[in-house]
Simulated scan of single mutants.
Amino acid sequence: MQEQVKALFTESIQAQIAAGEVLPSVLETASLSIAQTLINGRKLLCCGAASCHMLSDHFAALLVNHFETERPCLPAVSLSSHALNLSPAGSSQPSRDIFARQIKALGEQGDLLLAIAINGNEKNVVSAVEAALTKDMTVIVLVGDDGGELAGLLSASDVEIRVPAKRPSRILESHLVNIHCLTELVDMTLFPQEES
């Protein structure tokens, strides 16, 4: 079993190295898009597919609170994934439009949606991106594999951060690193620190 554990760590490290080779440019572009949205006085809405929703919550919390350096609060909301709170009265079925409905209610032109998925075919995230695009919001998608349906929805002003991996666990791990990169780059852009 210990050899399997070592193999899992090695696989994870190799996935991060591969991501580190292909993602710096898109992470920079995404962070500048987020910073510009905030400079313009707009807000970020975040959502994630079932296995990624914790990352949506985490990213919004990092912006509202702070990452590693104290700074003013930034306007970010993680959309609710609690179907019972958002389903029509009498329905116990989660809606594939659970995020899209919140975007229709809360999103405004100039806002930014950060959507997190594993393979890009998760229906609730696809619907969220479609809703954001109809509101003329900028979209940043974190996804893996081949990008799925999400890849075909994005325009030149949107950003796709596609992890070069197929295994869901490796994609999820890379999404966390990418979220921390984005937060640090946004902080550096909006609140530059003098070198000591």
Score class of each variant (00 low, 15 high):
Leu62Glu: 15
Ala60Leu: 06
Ala156Ile: 07
Asn40Pro: 02
Ala100Asn: 06
Val5Lys: 11
His58Gly: 13
Leu133Phe: 01
Pro24Phe: 13
Ser51Asn: 14
Pro88Tyr: 13
Gly48Pro: 09
Glu11Trp: 08
Ser155Lys: 12
Asp146Leu: 08
Gln193Met: 09
Glu108Cys: 15
Val26Gln: 13
Leu185Tyr: 04
Leu154Pro: 09
Ala49Cys: 13
His82Cys: 07
Glu3Pro: 07
Ala49Leu: 09
Gly120Lys: 09
Val139Gly: 07
Leu44Gln: 10
Ser12Glu: 12
Leu114His: 06
Thr134Glu: 06
Ser127Thr: 13
His175Asp: 05
Ala105Thr: 07
Asp187Lys: 01
Glu160Leu: 14
Ala76Asp: 07
Met137Pro: 04
Asp97Leu: 04
Pro164Cys: 02
Ser169Pro: 01
His66Lys: 14
Gln109Ala: 14
Val186Cys: 06
Asp111Tyr: 03
Leu153Gln: 02
Gln2Val: 12
Ile34Thr: 01
Glu184Ile: 07
Ala151Asp: 05
Val22Lys: 13
Ala89Met: 15
Leu44Ala: 12
Ala83Ile: 10
Ala83Gly: 12
Gly144Asn: 00
Asn40Tyr: 10
Ile171Gly: 01
Asp158Arg: 05
Leu63Phe: 04
Phe59Met: 13
Ser80Ala: 10
Met188Arg: 14
Leu150His: 00
Val129Leu: 08
Arg170Pro: 00
Asp97Pro: 04
Ala131Arg: 03
Lys104Trp: 03
Ala49Asp: 11
Asn121Thr: 14
Leu8Asp: 15
Ile103Lys: 00
Val159Gln: 06
Leu55Glu: 11
Gly152Ile: 03
Val163Lys: 03
Gly41Gln: 00
Leu62Arg: 14
Leu45His: 12
Val139Ala: 10
Ser87Gly: 13
Asp111Cys: 09
Ser169Ile: 10
Ser25Cys: 08
Gln36Lys: 06
Leu84Glu: 15
Gly107Glu: 07
Glu194Asp: 11
Ala35Ser: 11
Lys135Pro: 00
Ser196Gly: 05
Val163Met: 09
Val64Cys: 06
Asn40Cys: 12
Asn40Ser: 11
Val22Cys: 10
Val159Trp: 07
Arg96Gly: 15
Gln93Leu: 13
Val64Asp: 05
Val129Ala: 14
Gly20Thr: 06
Gly148Tyr: 01
Leu176His: 04
Val159Met: 01
Ser51Cys: 13
Leu112His: 01
Ser80His: 03
Lys135Glu: 06
Thr189Cys: 11
Glu149Val: 08
Glu108Arg: 15
Ser174Met: 10
Gly147Ile: 05
Ala35Tyr: 02
Ala83Gln: 12
Asp57Leu: 15
Leu133Tyr: 04
Leu185Trp: 03
Pro72Met: 04
Leu45Asp: 12
Ile103Val: 04
Leu112Phe: 09
Asp158Thr: 05
Ser80Thr: 09
Val143Gly: 07
